[in-house]
Nucleic acid binder design. Structure first.
Lengths: 339, 339
DNA sequence: TTGAAAGCGCTAACAA
DNA sequence: TTGTTAGCGCTTTCAA
């Protein structure tokens, strides 16, 4: 039983295809209750499934959305993706996933592929700044799009972001509130804006607490565990600090490793604050104190924005607030125990 | 500059749309080198992008594939998904992601949605047994599909699986080889075949080593960290074992927590073996010894099978071999230290 | 080598 | 309330 078409339904019901189309599209007017029921019954009987390709061809609505992330294997993204997919599905859209590996070339190719598939919009969690070609493509192709997590908050592009400065500030304030005064920070790649902002907020908190942080205590990492481990180990062998802020949770894991190998107790001798609150952090011992992003909700919200935009409304940037989740990896400095 | 069509290209080049279509489809014959070049030049000039919806409508090939997983947030799946997406992209297909939450109802709905989107095939990492409705749907709709990770290896359905019995055996053998004789196991839901098989292999290894394992040492978990933590803690307070096999890595994390709280040293007092080798396990301290699945490769291979099937070849079940990755969470029993 | 024309499955004027 | 008809952008006979 190959796929039946609207024509078959029309024939079996003894009406025109227009009528069938009308009931398919749930147009209230224009079909008598009696015919409508007849048509629906036949559709049910033969389990008719409309061909979305054909519908899309005429309506210019494919009911498909694209989502470009750097890498779904990076533990930050599955939640984002899940939030997006749930919301998309709720609205009867399908989600095409693409991994750009943060390469402009791949990003551009996916953008093109998605356009050829006639997606109704794309969610882009791109490299920091849109590459020229991607930007040009997006603007020329006039496919609605929404930036996600990373991007140019300042610009007029619609998107969903986190207040990274505030997140960094929260981490810094928490650490200084606990009485720490010798503090280090391991960051992500310095050209990434989210990193710059987190660091800025962090430093603002230290400033307010009159804590100075030498240049050399700001370690430039790359958001990955292994190098965070290496860098931190080297750092801890040469310097004394009582607290470290890792700009993401994955690097915080590396810090745990380094501390462990050097026999440094967390949190007794070293307090650690992470960023993101990815699911794995509750598996760490002790559990990681971290700055939480509502990742799932951000993904969900981004789809909302995107669909709004598709339906003609204009929307602007939405900025989410981070929250500090205090767990077990930070501790009050004991009096007189300062270095 | 709205999207240009084949017609525009034809007009600008001064040829018929048939000719344009021919060069678009890279048909070697039927177009003189001269016209081909002319057409290509114009396409390039205006950055023509073919409409895949329209092509799909006539060719019956949408160049889209569906992937249904229980939940992309479960750390086992992102790798699988990444492998699938990479291979799909390589072959010029797009991948639509769906999260079924292991609910037959959602699975069925997605299957229907995917069919309406006219996907060329679907990859299904479903509940253990296909629900009747899903199975019926798949067979009736004759959309090619490939099972992934879970499913009925015995049946004639094509799919990609792991030799779970062997994986369980490897875990058991490793533990008994290290001299352990008081061993527990925490499993996933007992109705899941993968669980049954892992357990069976595990027990076979213990048998071979003449180690007996009482019923009560086989704890039925649910693949989640929290309950694994609770169950293991209770178990360890009441029983003495020197090794635990957790049927997945996430539960192994729970075992770590329980041991930590009870002041039990890993691996000095308790050896732990996990299953899956999800990325987070290298963040555990000590690093987890586990049975590895080539998750990325399995996802990749599954797409290969699927596309083969789409192109008319028939393929059967592919069974991957697990490998044991020995890290730091297991240790040789010291002589005379047995309970 | 090239083109005219039919048609994929559907929606949307327009007419009846 | 219902149907006729013209496309959507493309591929694919078939003929020239």
């Amino acid at each position: 039983m190959g796929n039946l078409t609207i024509k078959d339904i029309a024939r079996k019901t003894g009406v025109s295809i227009t009528t069938v189309s009308r009931v398919l599209n749930k147009k209230e007017e224009g079909v008598s209750e009696k015919t409508r029921e007849k048509v629906l019954r036949v559709m049910e009987e033969v389990n008719y499934q409309p061909n979305q390709l054909a519908r899309g061809l005429v309506t210019k609505r494919s009911k498909m959305l694209g989502l470009i992330v750097p890498n779904i294997s990076n533990p930050f993204f599955p939640e984002l993706c899940r939030g997006a997919e749930d919301e998309a599905n709720l609205r009867q859209y399908s989600l095409i996933i693409c991994n750009s590996d943060d390469k402009s070339e791949k990003e551009k190719n996916y953008l093109r592929l998605l356009e050829e598939q006639q997606v109704d919009g794309v969610l882009l969690s791109s490299k920091d700044r849109l590459s020229k070609s991607s930007k040009a493509k997006l603007q020329r192709g006039k496919v609605p799009f929404v930036l996600l997590d990373r991007g140019e908050e300042a610009s007029n592009l619609s998107g969903v972001f986190l207040d990274n400065e505030k997140g960094g500030y929260m981490a810094g304030k928490h650490i200084t509130d606990l009485g720490h005064r010798h503090i280090a920070c391991i960051t992500g790649p310095s050209e990434i804006r989210n990193v710059q902002r987190r660091l800025k907020g962090f430093q603002r908190a230290l400033n307010e607490a009159s804590v100075e942080i030498p240049e050399s205590f700001i370690i430039t990492g790359d958001f990955k565990m292994e190098s965070a481990y290496q860098l931190t180990k080297k750092f801890l062998m040469e310097n004394n600090v009582t607290a470290i802020f890792a700009c993401n949770d994955v690097m915080a894991c590396g810090v745990y490793q380094a501390a462990h190998e050097l026999g440094i107790q967390i949190p007794e001798q070293l307090s650690i604050v992470g960023f993101d609150d990815i699911p794995l952090v509750t598996a760490l011992i002790p559990k990681l104190t971290t700055v939480r992003q509502e990742t799932y909700e951000m993904g969900r919200r981004a789809i909302e924005l995107l669909i709004n935009e598709i339906e003609g409304e204009t929307s602007e940037a939405v900025v989410f607030e981070p929250t500090l989740i205090v767990r077990e990896s930070t501790r009050q400095m004991e009096r007189g125990k300062d270095l």
